[in-house]
């Protein structure tokens, strides 16, 4: 992410356009203006729209988190940091955080590695290229909720596909929900099923931008395909890898629908909350029972903080392990 070199120095770019017979001064001014301000213009739409539709909800959430605010009864009393204090002592919150991190690690690490390898395989000349490329993003085509029902069938304890397959080779059925780690594994599988191809496609897009002559010269030097992958491909798409790591961190920490469907639509997430994630607990607090919106808002803010921290950690980890270009 340290690539900085931007535009050429203003004076050179301001050289009047050859085919335009405009007076020198006005063009110079336009050029300066263009260089100086157009970047802001280009990022402005994002900030304007975000300012309108994103910022208010954000600030409102902070505000609400300072209240004892129940949607159901309409109680609304200022509570200061009380919600946060209670939250930090709430065992169910920490349990949900534990589950969230566990599922995140179990799903993201294999997911990104496999996606990278898949993209590398896809970045070749082959027959049925389009079909194969599209084939791996197909999981994104249907809604999570619908496919979640299928996965509930695959991982059902008694009549499920996986336990049935295990049974045919003489392995005892797995308690897919009562066993915390089995449930994490199954949910991670659902997540990976859906997002591996998606990330592979993102990597593929970046790999296509790598100049082929780099490989050609490396090849002339006798570098193996594997070496080329690690020494050319991976470093060159590093910005994209960092991007997917951050995106996966954000998505992974907000995981909701998959574990919800896995638990037959109950936000409890297993009899003993084996796979209740933070997003599920936020939902449980905010929309069920007393609808403790203030508490849920405070929890969202802690989740927000956690995402930032983990995104930074992952960012640093990946940046260190994946060497970029020599800059």
């Amino acid at each position: 992410m340290s690539s900085t070199v931007g535009a050429a120095p203003p004076r050179r770019a301001a050289t009047p356009a050859r085919h335009r017979p405009q007076p020198r001064r006005s063009s110079y001014r336009l050029g300066r203006w263009d260089l100086k301000y157009s970047p802001y213009l280009y990022v402005a739409p994002f900030f304007v729209l975000f300012g309108i539709f994103g910022l208010f909800p954000l600030l409102y959430t902070v505000y609400v988190s300072l209240f004892d605010y129940e949607l159901l009864s309409g109680t609304r009393e200022f509570a200061g940091l009380e919600n946060y204090r209670v939250l930090l002592a709430d065992a169910q919150f920490w349990n949900a955080a534990y589950n969230t991190v566990g599922i995140f690690v179990l799903s993201t690490v294999p997911q990104l590695i496999v996606a990278l390898l898949l993209a590398n395989l896809l970045n070749r000349q082959m027959r049925g290229r389009t079909l194969l490329r599209m084939g791996i993003v197909v999981p994104n085509i249907t809604s999570v909720a619908a496919v979640g029902i299928i996965f509930a069938l695959i991982f059902a304890d008694r009549y499920g596909l996986v336990n049935w397959l295990l049974g045919t080779v003489g392995i005892d059925p797995v308690a897919w929900r009562d066993n915390r780690y089995a449930s994490w594994l199954a949910i991670a599988f659902m997540v990976d099923w859906r997002w591996t191809g998606y990330n592979a496609l993102i990597y593929l897009g970046a790999m296509q931008a790598i100049p082929r002559d780099l490989y050609e010269s490396a090849s002339l030097d006798g570098a193996s395909a594997w070496r080329q992958f690690w020494q050319i491909t991976v470093p060159l798409i590093r910005p994209t890898i960092l991007f997917t790591v951050i995106i996966s961190t954000i998505g992974g920490f907000q995981i909701f629908t998959e574990p919800l469907m896995y638990g037959h639509g109950m936000v409890r997430g297993g009899a003993e909350h084996e796979f209740q994630t933070l997003a599920m607990y936020i939902y449980e607090q905010t929309f069920t029972g007393n609808a403790e919106y203030g508490y849920g808002a405070a929890m969202s803010w802690l989740l927000f903080l956690m995402i930032i921290i983990f995104a930074l950690i992952n960012f640093a980890l990946v940046r260190r392990s994946v060497k970029g270009e020599q800059k």
Binding site: F50, G54, P57, L58, T61, I246, I247, I250, Q254, F256, A279, I282, Y283, T286, G296, A297, S300, L303, F304, I307, I308, A311
Partner: peptide, 9 residues
């Protein structure tokens, strides 16, 4: 902005 949990918004 991407890190803001969607549900609370």
């Amino acid at each position: 902005t991407m890190m803001v949990p969607t549900q609370l918004g």
